[in-house]
């Protein structure tokens, strides 16, 4: 399975994602520079965490206009898998590949800690190896992770089973405890927690592996 990881100026979880996919899962993985207008031959794109373009204006606001993001949009449109982690989630929302927005944490503090996430559905390419209701322990590290959407959209996400993970104890004020959602086609997933930082026992949790194992299973069976 071929993975591509987008690199923006200010990305800082790109190498973590690369390490997990290339070394832990032994998958062919390549970086895609933000100025590249082609992703090459990839099955799944990772939009990694960090502070793309210094978070200027709004988190993800500048990154969404990069040539690489146009290619990501085309990949998503064609049904290809896209996972946005942390800043990647913020970028996917700004790019309108996912609905809603991420704003300043309710408590204004940057929060860096392990949290419990409840998997709300196993019906997605990103959670098919999990059980509904399963709790994953995965770290968050963000200052702007408070998910916001108007009530009508939240209801739609709920009705369409598009809320993939919720916080067990809401750390940041996110509406409806939302930690991660997918698009209508279920092939684009954004989440604030970092599964790539929880994929080896040495890092305190392996629960994040389930997200990547789900992706691998989805690609194999596609």
């Amino acid at each position: 399975m071929k993975f591509g990881i987008i690199q923006f100026p200010g990305s800082n979880c790109d190498q973590d994602a690369y390490h997990v996919l290339a070394n832990v899962f032994s998958q062919p993985t390549r970086y895609v520079w933000h100025k590249d207008s082609s992703l090459g031959d990839v099955d799944c794109v990772v939009v990694p965490g960090g502070f793309s373009y210094g978070d200027y204006l709004r988190t993800g606001a500048i990154a969404r206009f990069s040539p690489a993001m146009k290619a990501v949009a085309a990949h998503a449109e064609a049904g290809g898998l896209v996972i946005g982690i942390c800043n990647g989630f913020q970028i996917l929302c700004e790019a309108q590949l996912l609905p809603g927005a991420l704003i300043r944490n309710k408590g204004l503090k940057f929060i860096c800690e392990h949290v419990d996430l409840r998997v709300e559905t196993s019906d997605s390419p990103f959670t098919n190896r999990c059980q509904k209701g399963q709790v994953l322990r995965i770290p968050i590290a963000h200052g702007e992770g408070c998910y916001f959407a108007e009530p009508a959209l939240i209801k739609q996400l709920q009705d369409e089973d598009r809320i993939l993970v919720r916080y067990v104890n809401n750390p940041n004020g996110s509406v409806d405890n939302i930690a991660g959602i997918c698009n209508e086609g279920r092939n684009v997933f954004g989440l604030m927690p970092h599964p790539e930082r929880a994929s080896e026992t040495a890092l305190g949790s392996e629960d994040g592996r389930l997200i990547f194992e789900s992706i691998l299973r989805a690609i194999v069976s596609a």
């Binding site: 704003i103 300043r104 944490n105 309710k106 408590g107 204004l108 408070c146 916001f148 108007e150 004020g173």
Partner: peptide, 10 residues
């Protein structure tokens, strides 16, 4: 400005 419906903790 943040919309009225949006939390403004700052």
């Amino acid at each position: 400005m943040p919309k009225k419906t949006v939390l403004d903790p700052q």
